[in-house]
């Protein structure tokens, strides 16, 4: 019987712990410096935001957990999460927070940071692209709908050129690669 097998000991937990030294302690400051995030560190994790959220039951990371993750420095996980993009921006969490943490606005900050790093879900990106290209989000494609209402097929006087021009110069234009 050989006892030479190297034993590394039993695992501490079945799931490997998150190594705090690999996280980004500056992330908290980074978010803190963004618009409406001054009260970020006031969070004491009461979970009021999660209780208020109409969609969090669909989420893997609940709103209070996302705030926790920001405070701990879990930059990658937060910025690549689907949750920040699925936020309905109903502002219920922000309205109810007992410590005046602007939760919804902080998720906006996260989305802006994520977008700057090119982490945008494809459906959101597609929306942005269509906005830049067509100057509007909802295009009237079925002209029979208008005909049924006794309207002429084309929307009279609709011109999106100016708005397209303006949008190209915005962050949205830049992020979706709206080169001329």
């Amino acid at each position: 019987m050989t006892e030479t097998e190297e034993r590394t000991g039993p695992p501490e937990t079945l799931i490997e712990p998150i190594d705090m030294s690999k996280l980004d302690p500056k992330f908290r400051k980074e978010i803190h410096s963004m618009p409406n995030a001054e009260e970020l560190s006031a969070c004491f994790a009461c979970t009021t935001c999660t209780a208020a959220c109409p969609i969090a039951n669909q989420w893997n990371y609940k709103p209070h957990q996302l705030i926790r993750m920001i405070l701990l420095g879990m930059r990658e996980e937060v910025l690549s999460s689907k949750e920040i993009w699925e936020c309905l921006t109903c502002f219920q969490c922000q309205e109810r927070c007992p410590q005046k943490v602007k939760v919804t606005d902080i998720f906006f900050d996260c989305k802006n940071l994520a977008a700057e790093e090119g982490i945008i879900p494809p459906n959101v990106l597609a929306l942005g692209k269509s906005l830049i290209e067509k100057g509007q989000l909802y295009e009237v494609l079925n002209d029979w709908e208008r005909e049924d209402l006794d309207l002429e097929a084309e929307v009279p006087g609709l011109n999106t050129d100016t708005i397209k021009e303006i949008l190209r110069g915005t962050r949205t234009g830049r992020l979706v690669g709206g080169e001329k």
Binding site: E12, T13, I15, E16, P17, I18, D19, M20, S21, A45, T47, H64, Q65, R68, M69, L72
Partner: peptide, 15 residues
């Protein structure tokens, strides 16, 4: 130190 974070439901390791 390994800590169980009950809000995140994750284990964290600190030095």
């Amino acid at each position: 130190i390994t800590v169980y974070d009950s809000l995140l439901d994750k284990y964290l390791r600190f030095s």
